[in-house]
Design a protein around this nucleic acid. Structure first.
Length: 420
DNA sequence: TCTGGGGTCCTAGGACCC
DNA sequence: TCTGGGGTCCTAGGACCC
């Protein structure tokens, strides 16, 4: 049996944990650059505020319903996610961290009653340790666990835990679900399915897998089998899971000059390489992306990328130099650029590389120690206290973030204060 | 004014080989 | 005039997820 543990309204809940005045209020969290809504408290959802709507379109609710607005605060959400995951890991034998707010757990060999008991306890523990509420769905496959989780969220009488041990018990639910609502089925595929007269999840479950494979793909065939209770998607091992790593963001203002874009890229390379170290990986290839704002129809669009192959390395200076060269290759003046980013791929685990392959072991060490020191100082005194030379200078690339709450848990200067 | 960021997996098709 | 066929590897791009 597989369980899916999912944090309710995760980003909004993280904000509410540290700002009790937000509890029970309609609240939305905005994307980078305060562009659109990426999370809503249940009260905001009840107001009819949709996922992904423009920030400007919710302004009326600020006046009429005291809607609260926050910019996204990823250091906070990432840290809260770790706390939730650590709690789950302490209580369950094996979990897969699937996303920032979801985890799968392998829980074979327990009766329905024991599962219910276990997960009611898990839910209570997570709430007590972190202040975050989770919903839990349990079934024979990942895809059905997703369905069970949906039921746990929608039926208050289940108190957040739904265990579906037999496949037949899902029949009625699947009949009422659109194919679009099944995990792994998006807009394109659901449209093509309805062309064949398959409109609900039960019809999909009962379709011929071989035919599905032929008409669609092996991916959708696995979904069909999973809906039938035949597990095709196993829990993934953490060390196998990472294949690439990306860092990039849209700018606060459009940028036209190469020299204005460089510091942004340097910043993203720094961030990406720090994560590379954390995963104990080195890389042998990177790609730099540069593009204009595709939503602005009245400007000339340009979207380009360049890949560079490298000697295996995890050295920040080398990687940044390579990224800057790639940027020079693709940059052309005369465009209003909106976003730059770097993708590191083709990883090799550091422990599998003979030390002699690095030019000097101590050089790597020194570069890493320097970066860790920078990280620590910034964590203590706030972002950008220390940055490499090309990161300082014009700050036009930095995203707008007008409603950002403090980094309550990851920056000493921003710890919440409690007065007694 | 404003339009997210970070991932995975699979497939099709080209290049190349014998 | 005819213009194979099967295999592998690689890359770009599509589709999806949260």
């Amino acid at each position: 049996m597989i369980a899916l543990i999912d944090c309710n309204n995760f980003f909004a809940s993280c904000e509410q944990v540290f700002q009790p005045q937000l509890a029970g209020k309609p609240l939305v969290v905005l994307s980078n650059n305060d562009g659109n809504v990426i999370a809503r408290s249940s009260e905001a959802r009840k107001l009819g505020i949709g996922m992904g709507v423009l920030a400007g379109s919710v302004r009326e609710f600020v006046r009429s319903h005291e809607l609260q607005i926050r910019s996204s605060n990823y250091p906070l959400y990432g840290d809260m996610s770790s706390r939730v995951m650590d709690t789950l890991e302490a209580l369950l034998p094996r979990i897969e961290r699937y996303s920032i707010d979801e985890a799968f757990a392998d829980v074979s060999g327990l009766s329905r009653e024991r599962l219910l008991e276990l997960f009611r306890f898990v839910r209570h523990r997570v709430q007590r340790h972190t202040g975050i509420q989770v919903s839990i769905g349990v079934a024979r496959t990942k895809t059905l666990a997703k369905v069970a989780n949906r039921l746990a969220k929608r039926h208050p009488e289940l108190a957040g835990v739904c265990v579906g041990t037999t496949t037949e018990s899902f029949g009625k639910t699947l009949e009422q679900m659109k194919t679009r609502d099944i995990w792994g089925i998006g807009g394109k595929i659901s449209k093509k399915l309805s062309g064949f007269g398959i409109n609900n999840a039960k019809q999909l479950r009962d379709a011929d897998p071989a035919w599905i494979k032929k008409q669609f793909s092996v991916v959708l065939m696995r979904t069909v089998l999973e809906l039938r209770g035949e597990s095709c998607l196993k829990l993934e091992e953490p060390e196998e899971s990472r294949k690439s790593l990306m860092c990039g963001r849209s700018f606060g203002k459009p940028l036209k000059e190469l020299e204005d874009i460089r510091p942004a890229l340097t910043h993203f390379v720094q961030n990406a390489v720090t994560r590379l170290w954390k995963y104990k990986q080195a890389t042998s290839a990177l790609t730099v992306y540069l593009s204009t704002n595709r939503f602005r129809k009245n400007i000339t669009q340009r979207s380009v990328s360049a890949s560079v192959e490298l000697e295996v390395t995890n050295n920040l200076m080398q990687l940044n130099a390579a990224a800057q060269r790639a940027l020079e290759q693709i940059f052309k003046s005369g465009f209003e650029y909106h976003k730059v980013g770097v993708l590191l791929h083709d990883f090799i685990s550091v422990k599998n590389i003979p030390a002699t392959l690095f030019e000097t072991e101590s050089g790597i060490q020194a570069s890493q120690e320097l970066m860790w020191a920078v990280k620590k100082i910034n964590a203590k005194f706030g972002r950008y206290t220390v940055a490499s030379a090309s990161v300082s200078g014009s700050a036009d690339w930095r995203a707008r973030s007008k409603f950002r709450s403090p980094a309550f848990t990851t920056c000493w200067n921003e710890l919440p204060l409690v007065r007694a």
